[in-house]
Each structure stands twice: as C-alpha cells, then as structure tokens.
Nucleic acid binder design. Structure first.
Length: 415
DNA sequence: TCTGGGGTCCTAGGACCC
DNA sequence: TCTGGGGTCCTAGGACCC
C-alpha cells in the first residue's frame, strides 16, 4: 500500500543570520541578530537565549547581553536564496518555492538519474554546503505535510527520512503545534479539550473538531492527523493579492500624517502591479490604532486599477471613512494597503478608458491622462536608473521606514 | 516596555438575482 | 402577499504561514 517517499522539503537554517556568519567569519559561533530596532532574524546561538525574529531589539539585548547586531546584506540573501533553490532545480523541475529560503520538490521522476530520494536529499545538502557555504535541512517523506514536519525535526543542519511504513508512529507522538495550520490560538483551543499530540488529535471525533475550529479547519486538521494529505507540488502559483504596510510609531490621525504614507505604499504596490500587468479591482485598507486594535475597510471597483495616484486616493477615502467611524481613536500606529482580485495579463492601456468611466476613480479626462502618463514615465526612469532616481516629492522625505525597503522586497511574492 | 512586513485562506452576514 | 430555496458577490474580521 505504501508508496515511495519522494517529496522533499528543504529549508535553509536561520537563513539571514547564517549568511551574515558566512560573510563575516568573526561572527561564526556567536549570538547575532540581523536588524536593530526589531530583530529580523537570529542565529542559533542567539535563539538559545530566547531571541526570536520580530522581537524588539531592546528585549533581545536583555535576553542576551552579548548579542551582536548586524545590518543586513539583503542583496546577498536574495542571491543565495535563489542559488539554493536552483540547486534543487538541478534535480527536478517540480519545485514549489514557499519563500526566500524554503521549497518543496517532488523527485519521483528523477530517481533513475540521481538515485533514491534520500540520496538526492544528501546531494542537495552537500552541494548547498560546498557551493554556497550554508546549512540546509531537508525532510523526505511521502507527503508535503510529513516532509515539512521532517525538515523541522531535522533542524539544524540535518536530514530526516520518514519511512512510509512508520508514518503514523512518527506523526502521532509529535505535538500538535508542529502541524501546518496549528498556530497559537488553535493550540490553546485544542489544549482546552486535552489534545496535546497529533496522536490525541487523531482520536478526536471529526464533529468535535469542526465545532471547535470551524468546518474547514476542523476537516483539514482531521485529515492531516490521519495522514491524509493529498496536496501536490505546484511549481507555479500566481499571487492573489499584493500589499504593503508601514508601522509608523504613534502618530496623530491626521491628513498630513496618513496621506504621505499612503502615497508611498500605493507607489510601491502600483509599481509592482504595473510591472506585471496585473491591476486589481479590490482595494483594502487597514488602520491599526495605538491600542493595537485594527480596522479594515475595502471597496471593489468595476474596473481594475494600478495607477499610483488613483490607488492612493481610494486608500485615503477608505482611511477617512475608518477614522470617521472611530472618532475616539486619535492615534494610529500602522497603515496598510492591499490590492486583490488581480487580473491576469491585463492590457494596461485599457485601464485608462475604463478608469475614466467613473469620475471618482479618475476625476477629469486630462488629469486622468496626465496621471497615467506620469506613472509610465516614472516606471521607465526607475527601470533605467533605480527606484530612488525619481518619485513623489512629498514622499521622498519624512516617511518613517522601520525596515529597509530591500528587506520588504525579499518578502514580496512574484506577481 | 505590547513585534515588522508580505502573503493565503476561511467565516459569517447581507445584498441581490433567479 | 407569504413562503421557500439556491447561488454569487461583497465586506469585515481572524487565524495562520514565512
């Protein structure tokens, strides 16, 4: 019954921190953190002290006084991440990249060339170590879920093969939080009914899980606990949305505060959408207040948009509506814009006439024309001379950037 | 001392249509 | 006029992942 384990999950260990230790040998073996105000990544030596990604720098220093902070080499992260994924691609075209440092692969079709899946996994680890100088952990199993868990168990710098005959034995003794889809909230909910391990989860009736977690989540978890994971490797998945956000500290909820930030966010998103000819119909805005409560508001248009200024104006309208509904909230700490319902291969020329049909979306023919032409001109100049060569004057200065734009780009998904 | 930024998917209620 | 049913889309909020 058991087929062969041919799914690989490969995951670079403490990726950003490992790159820094590769670039600067004096950092090897030491607790380091990439970032400053906020920890973007921590080395294993730092993790041993409890330092985690996303943690405020001050808190990290308290946990680990000898922690060394380094500013990131973001271009190197991109280059080395791409190179590691390419190594996997040398064995099979069936590679599904999850993020900059992580990918699934199905090697079923190439074992006759390169040997058993475990051999291929060993070869990948050896090559990434030899050619790039980086540690990478690999899990090998019959399903994506098991391979993913195996690579986590194998870390750091390890290899773990889950034999198809012992899958349930392997799976059921593990804690539920190792499962894909079990986060802090679900973990607590499960603990409240006495479920701590995947084995215990598998013995919980389906109706009980669905009542506790909802239909989809309950069904999914039950399937995974019973080791029924039917997901396949998908080599090319198109993005369904594109967004940008900015934490701005604590600032008064006023026009002169949110307008420049929204314009900057719209600029980043609009540029990406136009570059891939993927305008979108739904614009969603999120405002987080000082008390960390956040409110979203969205609008779906008849025609897709990607023009920076139009996107910014719609976002402004939505933010004003949110603020009007929350008159007691006078301080905002984060602004976000997201565009969804993206079109595929849209002819951007069409955006002009379609946009003009709606006065609000594109007020005035001449102005709309000018905006459209301006975006195209800016895009072209940036293509040749770089992002900072040109931009919106009011945006260039005074935008608080809590993280470098280069770091943001690493997280962007290909549209 | 309340974690940054880019994403995906699901839920539930309501509008609207047949 | 009342009653019933099904489907799609939109919106707001959440959980989760890297």
């Amino acid at each position: 019954m058991a087929t062969t384990a041919t799914i690989l999950h490969a995951d670079l260990d403490a990726f950003y921190a490992s790159v820094e230790q590769l670039l600067d040998p004096s950092l090897r073996g030491k607790p380091i953190a990439v970032g400053g105000g906020v920890v973007l990544a921590a080395s294993y030596e730092a993790k041993a002290f409890g330092v985690r990604g996303g943690m405020p720098g001050r808190q990290a220093r308290e946990l680990c006084p000898q922690l060394i902070f380094v500013s990131g080499h973001f271009r190197e992260y991109q280059r080395l991440g791409d190179a590691a994924i390419k190594v996997i691609g040398d064995f099979t075209p069936l590679v599904e990249r999850i993020s900059i440092d992580e990918a699934f692969a199905d090697v079923a079709g190439c074992t006759h060339l390169f040997g058993a899946p475990a051999e291929i996994a060993r070869a990948i680890r050896q090559r990434v170590r030899a050619e790039l100088g980086l540690p990478i952990s690999v899990g090998v199993a019959r399903t994506k879920h098991l391979a993913k868990i195996a690579s986590q168990v194998a870390k750091p710098d390890g290899l773990m093969v889950v034999d198809p005959d012992t899958e349930l034995k392997f799976l059921h003794r593990l804690p539920v939080e190792l499962m894909w889809g079990v986060g802090p909230v679900t973990k607590v909910r499960l603990a409240e009914i006495g479920v701590l391990t995947i084995g215990q989860l598998s013995k919980t009736p389906g109706w009980s899980l669905e009542r506790l977690l909802g239909h989809a989540a309950g069904e999914k978890l039950a399937a995974l606990a019973w080791n029924r994971d039917r997901r396949e490797i998908k080599a090319h998945r198109r993005a369904r949305s594109a967004g940008a956000q900015s934490a701005i500290g604590r600032k008064p909820a006023e026009e002169q505060v949110f307008r420049p930030t929204l314009l900057h966010l719209a600029d980043r998103i609009g540029t990406r959408l136009r570059a891939k000819s993927r305008p979108g119909r739904t614009v969603t805005v999120r405002v987080r207040f000082a008390n960390l409560n956040s409110v979203t508001r969205s609008v779906t248009l008849d025609a897709p948009i990607s023009a920076t200024v139009i996107l910014a104006e719609i976002a402004e309208d939505l933010v004003r509506a949110i603020l009007a509904e929350h008159p007691d909230e006078r301080t905002i700490s984060l602004l976000a814009i997201s565009v969804s319902h993206l079109e595929e291969n849209w002819d951007l020329e069409l955006e002009l006439p379609l946009g003009l049909q709606d006065e609000r979306r594109c007020p005035g023919t001449k102005i709309g024309m000018a905006r459209w032409a301006a975006d195209r001109a800016v895009d072209k100049i940036r293509d040749r001379f770089g992002w900072d060569a040109i931009g919106y004057g009011s945006v260039a200065l005074g935008i608080s950037r809590s993280v470098p734009d280069e770091f943001r780009e690493l997280a962007e998904k290909d549209l």
